[in-house]
């Protein structure tokens, strides 16, 4: 069995230097990484535990700045955060679906993103909400990248050696806006999405028409997908059933599903249509109800 080292740096500078070493792996909640390492499915020579770094544990909302969500903040803190529930309900929906209580105590949204599963439950809502990833590099600079560009394939991200996801930034929600995330699984709990859909939308002041909408899909492509045409088709529309139908069709057309043990490509494409409409109705209801 290969030997592993463990380090728990307290600063970003130390962390990026450690992560630049060969075989270094970032450790946040560990709910994916520990199993992968122990079952020898991921190579690791050095585990860099990021939970002692203050920037990665920050979770704060400000009406001007938006939401700053540290990469190592565990799910339970996010799901229980009053500003997340109120202003970014789609993110709350996605995060609350990740595992049971035990996993919620540990798993982080930053880790969910860096693990880059196409079916990750937090990513479609982040994309729909226009989140950006703030990345620290070994040279000390900060890169900002939209979340839809972060994952490059199953289990792969744009992060290079020594690079580290510091936090996610979500812009302040627009007036009269809301969001939702829905996934389909064959049971009620504790499963991996067959399809996931995140939506965010904003209405005009008298709430008669949509100003903008963003729709993102999970588990129907090598990475979570933003489907810009589907969202754009809703702009200026009253969001009647025919409008939702049109957005659902455009989303289906942009989905890239495969067939596997969780569902056939056709079945997934069908689910995309159903879930896009349902998620839009929920977000709409949230704007009108709140």
């Amino acid at each position: 069995m290969k030997e592993i080292d463990y380090a728990a740096p307290a600063t970003l500078t130390e962390a990026t230097a450690l992560l630049a070493r060969k075989g270094a792996r970032a450790l946040a909640g560990g709910t994916d990484l520990i199993v992968q390492v122990r079952e020898n499915r991921r190579d690791a020579e050095l585990l860099v535990d990021l939970k002692n770094i203050a920037e990665l544990n920050t979770l704060r909302f400000d009406a001007k700045e938006g939401l700053v969500l540290g990469a190592a903040v565990p799910c339970y803190r996010i799901a229980e955060h009053p500003d997340v529930r109120k202003r970014y309900p789609g993110l709350g929906d996605g995060v609350a679906l990740i595992g049971g209580v035990q996993i919620q105590s540990r798993a982080s949204v930053g880790g969910n993103l860096c693990n880059a599963s196409p079916a990750a439950d937090s990513i479609p809502a982040l994309i729909a909400l226009g989140a950006s990833a703030v990345i620290a590099t070994p040279s000390g600079t900060r890169d900002l990248i939209p979340v839809e560009k972060f994952c490059t394939g199953p289990g792969r991200t744009i992060l290079g050696p020594g690079e580290l996801l510091v936090h996610l930034h979500l812009p302040p929600p627009a007036p009269n806006s809301s969001s939702a995330y829905l996934r389909f699984i064959p049971r009620k709990e504790m499963d991996i999405a067959v399809v996931g859909v995140g939506v965010a939308l904003a209405l005009n002041d008298n709430r008669t028409a949509c100003v903008f909408a963003r729709i993102a899909l999970g588990a129907v492509g090598p990475t979570p997908l933003l489907v810009p045409e589907a969202g754009a088709a809703l702009a200026g529309r009253p969001l009647a059933e025919a409008d939702l139908e049109r957005a659902a069709e455009l989303a289906q057309a942009q989905a890239l599903p495969i067939s596997d043990m969780r569902g056939s490509a056709d079945y997934r494409r069908h689910l995309v249509g159903v879930l896009v409409k349902r998620a839009l109705r929920i977000a709409l209801q949230r704007v009108k109800g709140g």
Binding site: Y6, A8, L27, G30, T31, I34, V35, L47, D49, K51, Y76, V101, Q102, I103, S105, R106
Partner: peptide, 20 residues
């Protein structure tokens, strides 16, 4: 299952080194 600083966790998903 154990409690780690009062939070319920799966101890198989925590490295021993992390409980410092």
């Amino acid at each position: 299952n154990v409690l780690l600083d009062g939070r319920l966790v799966n101890s198989c998903l925590v490295f021993g080194a992390e409980v410092q």
